[in-house]
């Protein structure tokens, strides 16, 4: 009895922890791990209640259901991971394309970043910034992806 409660109770705690992590964290990968942990908790409970500590053998039906559940969870996880990678690639290439179009709109074709002392004066007005004008220290997300287009 107590062994079943310990194992099943651990499953319930895992389920609650996974659910909390799923709701609180924003990153997709964290959510995916959280769902898997919560699912693992449910599997624990199933396995724990299959055997009631008496003379009867463990119930094979919950065991088979858990086996099915594991396969479905693995399949769904694999698909979500593949989708996640494509999403990241799409975001990266979108960011790359944005950077390229910005440097193409500048008067010269994106030279390597220079220090402020080496900066050569051009026809541009001082307010106009291009990636070429930025030192590496300026490369924060705000300067790379400004809210409003400049110029």
């Amino acid at each position: 009895m107590s062994a079943q409660f310990l194992y099943g109770g651990a499953g319930i705690l895992l389920f609650a922890l996974g659910l909390w992590s799923l709701l609180v964290h924003e990153a997709l990968l964290r959510k995916l791990i959280a769902i898997n942990i919560a699912g693992g908790g449910v599997f624990h409970v199933f396995i724990a209640i299959a055997y009631r500590g008496d003379t009867a053998p463990p119930d094979p039906v919950p065991h088979a259901l858990v086996l099915t559940g594991i396969v479905v969870a693995v399949s769904a996880t694999a698909l979500v991971l593949a989708l996640h990678r494509r999403l990241e690639q799409a975001e990266e290439s979108a960011a790359d394309a944005e950077g390229r179009s910005e440097s193409a709109s500048a008067s010269s074709a994106a030279p390597p970043p220079r220090t402020p002392t080496e900066r050569t004066p051009t026809e541009r007005t001082p307010t106009e910034l291009t990636p070429a004008d930025l030192t590496p220290a300026d490369l924060t997300p705000e300067t790379l992806h400004p809210e409003t287009p400049h110029g």
């Binding site: 409660f5 099943g8 319930i12 389920f15 609180v24 209640i49 009631r52 463990p58």
Partner: peptide, 30 residues
């Protein structure tokens, strides 16, 4: 959320404990 889920976990633990205390009914195992 943590407090609410802790309450949910406590409820589920209580339900599991109560279920395990019961005499096992007819099962698919037989």
């Amino acid at each position: 959320l943590g407090i609410l889920l802790a309450l949910l976990a406590a409820l589920l633990l209580w339900a599991l404990h109560a279920t395990l205390a019961l005499e096992p009914g007819p099962r698919l195992a037989e």
